[in-house]
Amino acid sequence: MDVFMKGLSKAKEGVVAAAEKTKQGVAEAAGKTKEGVLYVGSKTKEGVVHGVATVAEKTKEQVTNVGGAVVTGVTAVAQKTVEGAGSIAAATGFVKKDQLGKNEEGAPQEGILEDMPVDPDNEAYEMPSEEGYQDYEPEA
């Protein structure tokens, strides 16, 4: 019985440690998101679009440190934060509304985080759909 109880105690310690790591990862992701939003706020009209992409990228980098179902929630929060940063930029006159959601080359930025393969159960990952990809044929 002692062996059984000791095993359960060790398992509990492992769960607590994993929860603490997840909590730490979420806190880091939130900190990076805040950094990115402050970065966007300090940019001029020309830099705002690039700044919004930076927020998304920093958040995406930190999301990889967070495991399990938390990833889905962090990704949703990050996307809403990026959308909010863009709205703030438009409201303050840093950028025109028609410039939001495009990178410096004018290509749409939507789907940055949505296409990231995420499995809350950590069982399997699927690649994003290939609808947006084109076949590449090298020139002879």
Rank of each mutant, 00 (worst) to 15 (best):
M1Q: 15
M1K: 15
M1E: 15
D2S: 06
V3I: 13
F4Q: 00
M5V: 10
K6C: 14
K6L: 07
G7F: 14
G7T: 15
L8W: 15
S9C: 11
K10G: 01
K10H: 02
G14S: 06
G14L: 09
V15R: 00
V15T: 00
V15C: 08
V15G: 00
V16H: 03
V16W: 13
A17C: 08
A17N: 05
A17Q: 03
A19R: 04
A19Q: 01
E20V: 14
E20T: 09
E20G: 12
K21I: 12
T22V: 14
T22M: 04
K23M: 09
Q24A: 12
Q24Y: 03
G25L: 13
G25D: 03
G25F: 15
V26R: 00
V26S: 00
A27I: 13
A27M: 08
E28V: 11
E28P: 01
A29V: 07
A29Q: 02
A30G: 01
A30K: 01
G36Q: 13
G36N: 08
V37K: 00
V37Q: 00
Y39D: 01
Y39G: 04
V40D: 00
K45M: 14
G47I: 14
V48A: 04
V48K: 00
V48C: 03
V48E: 00
V49M: 03
V49T: 04
H50Q: 03
G51P: 01
T54K: 12
A56V: 14
E57G: 07
K58W: 15
T59G: 07
K60V: 15
K60G: 13
E61T: 06
Q62Y: 12
Q62G: 10
V63G: 02
T64S: 10
T64P: 08
N65E: 09
V66T: 01
V66P: 02
G67R: 05
G67N: 02
G68T: 10
G68Q: 01
V70S: 03
V70F: 01
V70T: 03
V70P: 05
T72S: 11
G73M: 10
G73F: 10
V74P: 01
V74Q: 01
V74G: 02
T75N: 04
A76V: 07
V77P: 02
Q79T: 13
K80F: 14
K80N: 04
K80V: 11
T81Q: 02
V82S: 05
E83T: 07
E83R: 13
E83A: 08
E83S: 06
G84K: 10
A85L: 14
A85T: 07
A85Y: 13
A85Q: 05
G86W: 14
S87R: 05
I88W: 11
I88Y: 05
I88S: 03
A90L: 05
A91G: 03
T92N: 05
G93N: 04
G93M: 11
F94H: 03
F94D: 06
V95A: 15
V95G: 04
K96D: 11
K97W: 04
K97A: 05
K97G: 13
Q99H: 13
Q99C: 09
G101F: 10
G101N: 15
G101W: 10
K102C: 15
K102Q: 15
N103C: 05
E105M: 15
E105K: 04
E105W: 00
P108F: 06
E110S: 12
I112N: 07
I112Q: 04
E114K: 05
E114S: 09
E114Q: 10
M116K: 08
P117S: 04
P117H: 07
V118N: 14
V118D: 09
P120D: 03
P120A: 10
N122E: 07
N122C: 07
E123F: 04
A124F: 05
A124I: 13
Y125Q: 13
Y125P: 12
M127C: 10
P128D: 02
S129N: 05
S129D: 08
S129E: 07
E130P: 09
E131L: 10
E131W: 11
G132V: 08
G132M: 08
G132R: 03
Q134D: 07
Q134N: 04
Y136H: 09
Y136A: 05
E137R: 10
P138I: 08
A140F: 13
A140E: 04
A140R: 12
